[in-house]
């Protein structure tokens, strides 16, 4: 069982191991299918029809399973690797170490948004994007351009204080913890971070930027924290809800895992600290 750590606390060796495993997965063809899967769900998850990966209660268990699968793909390359998380309430500047050339690389350049530093710069030859929404095949970022500020710790605390997991109509207009965390309503946590990073992170092919995994790992950690603080609350809805994955229904694309299966992650991984 692995321990998922705050990326700010990783040693140089841990950073190198994570980056190298990601690059190796990209090189062996195992990375791009994750991008394709994500985009397929982004395009098909709709407020008025079937919705699984986004804008629905299963946003959190779907991404928990998706991250687990990605983490296992990295561990098949290097068993020492666990997903790190990016606490954007703490490391909230364009100069934070997460954007260092020894880790995820920096902001995109002014002319075209292209990331030119670090291991995922196009010029390295090891990070050409194959699953795209437009003709550009290089990684792009525009840190802080789409929205000026990342969510704050009080923002995150206010969302953790919402005791009901989710509510009808179980979509982007819902009240409840899930939708406030996803960001369609309220202070906006998850969506805002995608927009703050910009480039591919603002699009349906957001996993093209490796920071996607660190962002969603923190979203997962916040859900884990909410679960810990609200032991009497659980995933909703429980049964009989059209177009939405109920507690014990299988989730696509796996079809063999339900939200209920994803509630307790303690046998699979833990987090280094509470929020």
């Amino acid at each position: 069982m692995g321990v998922r750590k705050n990326q700010a606390t990783l040693t140089a060796q841990e950073k190198r191991a994570f980056v190298n495993a990601v690059l190796a997965l990209k090189a062996n063809g195992g990375y791009d299918p994750f991008v394709t899967t994500h985009n397929q769900f982004i395009l098909s998850d709709v407020d008025n029809g079937e919705r699984t990966g986004h804008r629905s209660p299963s946003f959190l268990p779907w991404h928990r399973k998706y991250l687990l699968q990605f983490e296992q793909a990295l561990q098949a390359i290097d068993p020492s690797v666990n997903l790190p998380y990016w606490d954007w309430t703490a490391d909230r500047s364009t100069g934070s170490s997460i954007w260092g050339a020894d880790f995820l690389g920096g902001n995109g350049r002014a002319s075209d948004g292209q990331v030119t530093t670090g291991p995922f710069a196009y010029s390295t030859g090891g990070w050409t994007l194959n699953v795209n929404t437009d003709s550009r095949t290089y990684l792009r970022r525009q840190l802080g351009a789409g929205v000026a500020q990342l969510p704050t710790r009080p923002d995150a605390e206010s969302v953790l204080a919402i005791t009901t997991y989710d509510a009808a109509p179980w979509n982007s207009s819902s009240a409840g913890f899930r939708n406030a965390l996803e960001g369609w309503r309220g202070v906006n946590l998850h969506n805002r971070v995608h927009v703050w990073v910009g480039g591919q992170m603002a699009t349906g092919v957001s996993p093209n930027d490796p920071v996607f995994w660190l962002h969603h790992c923190f979203v997962d950690k916040l859900w884990s924290e909410w679960q810990k603080r609200n032991p009497g609350q659980t995933y909703l809805p429980t049964a009989g809800t059209p177009d939405v994955v109920d507690l014990n229904e299988p989730m696509k694309p796996w079809n063999n895992v339900s939200p209920a299966d994803m509630l307790d992650h303690s046998a699979l991984y833990t987090y280094d600290t509470g929020f």
Binding site: L43, V46, D47, T133, G146, P169, S172, H194, T203
Partner: peptide
């Protein structure tokens, strides 16, 4: 590629989280 949100706003595949 675009879609409409329940509150009447719009998103596209290029600006998916806004």
């Amino acid at each position: 590629h675009m879609m409409r949100n329940a509150d009447g706003t719009w998103i596209s595949v290029v600006n998916h989280y806004q």
